[in-house]
Computed example of a mutant assay.
Amino acid sequence: MLVIVTRSSDADDALQEAWLRWERLPDGSVDDAGAFLRTVVTRICFDMMNSARARREIYAGPWLPEPLVTEGGPEDRATLDDTVSVAMLAVFQRLTPAERTAFILHDVFAAPFVEIAETVGRTPAGVRQLASRARRRIREEAPSRSTDRSEHQGAVEAFLAASTGGDFTRLLKILDPDVVWRSDGGGLVTAARVPVVGHEKTAHFVQQVMQWVDLSTARILRREVNGAPGLVLIDRTGLTIVLAFTVHDGFITEIDAVVNPEKLRHLHM
């Protein structure tokens, strides 16, 4: 569900509305409960996606999905799930609502094209084309990413040590030459309005961010961010920064920083 709408509050609202509609149905009026609920939830999410897309057209600065932050992953899990990473969810959001719905329902949940067609108001052949187009865009736009948990964790730890220690040279060594830093403040919190590109510019930017933070009183927490090792920084003023990382061949290639307080309300730190 969250892969489709990317906000936990929207996912909760969609499930609650679907349940209310289910409860209002007369007994025995639905032959296939699973198909019915899947269709209802999808239609609700489809409407949410269209509304969210309109809001993002006037969004201040880069838009990033609401982060999922948890205490930690299973100790015995050696690989990462790429489908819920912040970078991958951002790619999903660049698809049209119809493309995203067709791809996720068919490729992830194995729903038949006929069923999806009823939801998005297209023919089955049209839905097949939507899923194919979405698949192609995801292959082209999804960043290369290591699925090895220890490699990812090592890069995050190296970043943390270098950034908190003010070690510019060490920071450059862990950042890919073409690394991209994206900040989502939503116009509510000071953040870079355009992506910062390149390891030197990013390293300088990270140092500037750290200068704003009193490390003697701030809390820096190691957390799972969308299923991968990440960081949460909370300073004494209450400012919270959630950092998600994309790692490839041992280097950090993308850093996604969510500071928009409206996207962090669901967090309990």
Rank of each mutant, 00 (worst) to 15 (best):
G165H: 15
Q208I: 14
S132P: 05
P177D: 01
A125E: 03
A155N: 02
T164Y: 08
G126S: 08
E157L: 14
A203R: 01
S163D: 12
H204S: 15
R136A: 12
E140D: 11
R193K: 10
P143C: 08
T164E: 11
R182Y: 12
T169E: 11
Q207T: 10
V156H: 01
G154N: 06
T164C: 09
R193V: 08
R139E: 14
Q153I: 00
V180D: 00
T164P: 13
K173L: 14
G165A: 14
D178C: 05
G186N: 09
G166D: 14
H152I: 01
T164F: 15
A191L: 15
E141M: 11
T202S: 14
D167P: 04
V196A: 07
S132F: 02
D178K: 08
D148W: 04
A203T: 05
V189N: 06
P143S: 10
A158I: 02
F205N: 12
V206T: 06
S150H: 05
A134Q: 09
Q153P: 00
Q207L: 14
A134I: 04
K173D: 05
A142W: 03
L172P: 07
E151N: 03
V206Q: 03
G154W: 00
S146E: 00
V206R: 03
R182K: 11
V194E: 15
S132G: 05
H199K: 15
A161I: 08
A161G: 15
L188A: 11
H204Q: 12
L171Y: 11
Q208G: 14
A161D: 13
V197Q: 01
A155L: 04
A155W: 00
S144T: 14
R193L: 15
R133W: 10
V189W: 04
V179H: 00
A142M: 07
R122W: 06
T147V: 07
V196N: 05
G126F: 06
A161K: 09
G121A: 01
Q207F: 15
L130N: 08
L171S: 15
D148H: 07
R137E: 06
F168V: 08
G198W: 00
E141C: 08
A142E: 02
R182N: 13
D184L: 04
E200R: 02
G126I: 12
S183M: 09
P177S: 02
V197H: 03
V156S: 01
G166F: 10
R137F: 13
R136H: 13
S163T: 14
E200P: 10
P124G: 07
R182F: 09
R182V: 15
D167M: 12
G185M: 02
R170M: 12
R128P: 11
E140C: 05
Q208V: 15
E157T: 15
G154T: 00
V206A: 05
D167K: 07
H204R: 09
A162K: 03
V156L: 01
A158S: 09
E157A: 13
A134K: 06
Q208H: 14
A142D: 02
V206H: 04
A203Y: 01
P143M: 08
F168I: 12
L160Y: 13
T169L: 13
F159I: 03
F159G: 10
Q208M: 13
R193H: 12
R149P: 00
S150I: 04
D148P: 04
P143T: 10
V156M: 01
S144W: 10
T190N: 07
I174M: 13
E140L: 06
D148A: 07
P124N: 11
T147H: 05
A125Y: 10
R139M: 08
V179I: 01
A134G: 09
G166Y: 08
A161M: 13
